[in-house]
Amino acid sequence: MAREYIWEVPVRVTHWVNVISILALSITGLYIGDPYAQGADEHSMLMGKMRFFHFIFAYIFIASLIVRVYWWFVGNKYARLDQFIPLSGERWKNLIDTALFYGFMKKDLPHSPGHTGLAGFTYFFLILLFVLEIITGFALYSQSHEGGAIWTLLGGWMLPVLGVGMVRFIHHVIMWLIAVFVIIHVYISVHNNIIEKNSLVMSIFNGYKNFQDRQHH
C-alpha cells in the first residue's frame, strides 16, 4: 500500500475557505433574496447584517478563487490546469470511463491518483459559474454605488446588457446549481472512497491518499 501526497496546502485551504464561504453566502444570500426571518425590533439590523456578511464572504471567496487559479500554474502536478481541462487523449478516456462507471455501464473506476477527468472538467465549469456569480453579484452591488467606475467594470456593465431582472435571476439560479453540485460532489467523494478504499475523504484534510497495491504514475 502506498501513501502519496496529492493535495497541497493551498489546494486544501482554498477548498475549505470555499466551503465556508459558499455556505455563508448561500445562507445570507437566501435571506437577502427572500427574508426568512423578521428582525426582533427596529434596532435589530438583521437585513443589514446579512448584507454585510454576504459582501464580506464574497470578497473572501474571490480571494480564495484568485489563489486557486494562480495555483493552477504553479502547483504540483495534481493541482495544475491540465487536470481541469482534458487536453490529452488519455485524460479524455479517463473522463469518459469514469462517467460510464458512474452510469453503471463499466465495471471498474479508472485509476486517477489526482482528480478524475470528469471531476476536473466539472470543477472547471464550476469555476466559470463562480466567476459569473461574482460578476452578477457586482452588477447588483453597483446599483448602490452610482457612478462608481470600478463597480461598473467589475459587473455593472452587465445591467444595461441583460437588464436587472435577468441579472438577479442568474445570480439566484447559480446558487441552486452550486447546491446541486455540492450534493453530487460530497456523495461521489464518499462513494469513490468506499469503492477505491483510498482514504479520499481524509485526503482533503491531510493531503494524503492511500493507494492499494497498484501501479500508478
Binding site: 437566501l30 433574496g33 458512474y102 441552486w176 447546491a179 446541486v180 450534493i183 453530487i184 462513494h191 469503492i195
Partner: peptide, 23 residues
C-alpha cells in the same frame, strides 16, 4: 427561481440516493 431551485436540488438528492442504493 427559488421554487425551481428547491425542486432541482431535491431531484439531485433523490438521484444521488438512488445511485447509492443501486451501487
Amino acid at each position: 427561481a427559488d421554487k425551481v431551485g428547491v425542486a432541482v436540488v431535491g431531484a439531485a438528492a433523490a438521484g444521488v440516493a438512488a445511485h447509492a442504493i443501486i451501487r
